[in-house]
């Protein structure tokens, strides 16, 4: 079922993993009896924008969370530039699903962005003016500077997503891992987010995102991982994003998926 690209254990693959900003090996996660993610190998190419694509319940978000040890996998290892994840946390910025938090939480936009500087601030470090300036700069990049002192619950879905992206920008990481960044956002926000992500890629950073809109994959991304519990295919979009591979990933649901991308969201 797997495509040779990611499972061939050759010397050059080993080199690729050592150089990769995020290399996942043998990742298996289970919530109950059946695995949500089974024996997944993914080697993200440095400086690329990679989409994880697959049907509902394919384990896309689960794979991301397990890769960042947000949830505990049954098995699997993750390396960041060849080193264990635990030593390299500060290189990774994670943007969780917007729906995963309580937006009634008593906090302002600027405070959420400042959370991205946790590793610099530590337990008791004071938020100084240069921290605030950096947070404002992150907000400016996503077009949200005017909303800095708003309570987060007053924002639209798209604005909330931009604030989450600004928090990730404030981390000044090398790898940006996003879970459904375009879910339930307006068209303007989608454009703004993709522009920022492409800026990051062009500056040599790496972007990995769970994505549900098949129609925009070739336009937005360089590489794609087709996932349905296991990896069906992975590699450059022009090589891997084929009808045959999509059929193998989505099975009979592909026709609906093509007509209505929303129906494969999740």
């Amino acid at each position: 079922m797997s495509i040779s690209l990611v499972t061939d254990r050759t010397a050059s693959d080993e080199d690729a993993r050592m150089a990769s900003p995020l290399a996942i090996r043998g990742m298996t996660v289970s919530y109950g009896q059946t695995p949500a993610v089974f024996s997944v190998d993914v080697t993200v190419r440095a400086g690329s924008m990679t989409a994880i694509v697959g049907p509902n319940g394919a384990g896309k978000s689960t794979l991301l969370k397990a890769a960042l040890q947000v949830i505990k996998p049954l098995a699997g290892t993750v390396s960041v530039f060849g080193k264990p994840l635990a030593q390299m946390r500060d290189r990774i910025a994670y943007v969780p699903q917007r729906a995963s938090v309580d937006w009634d939480f008593p906090t302002r936009v600027i405070d959420v962005v400042t959370m991205g500087m946790y590793r610099q601030l530590g337990l008791l470090g004071r938020v100084r003016s240069h921290h605030r300036a950096a947070a404002m700069a992150s907000l400016t990049r996503v077009g949200m500077a005017d909303f800095a002192t708003r309570q987060i619950g007053q924002l639209s879905g798209g604005q909330q997503q931009r604030v989450f992206l600004a928090r990730a920008l404030a981390q000044e990481a090398e790898i940006y891992v996003l879970d459904e960044p375009f879910a339930g956002v307006d068209a303007a926000t989608e454009k703004a987010i993709i522009a920022v992500l492409k800026e990051l890629r062009d500056a040599g950073r790496t972007v990995l995102a769970v994505h549900h809109d098949l129609a925009t994959v070739p336009e937005y991304f360089d590489d794609v991982v087709l996932l349905n519990t296991q990896v069906v295919a992975a590699g450059p979009v022009e090589e891997v994003f084929t009808d045959a591979n999509l059929h193998a990933t989505y099975g009979g649901r592909l026709t609906t998926a093509r007509i209505d991308p929303e129906s494969v969201a999740g």
């Binding site: 960042l68 947000v70 946390r89 969780p96 995963s100 938090v101 959370m115």
Partner: peptide, 9 residues
Amino acid sequence: FDEGFARGL
């Protein structure tokens, strides 16, 4: 506020 993000850190 955001347990997932905190664990990611």
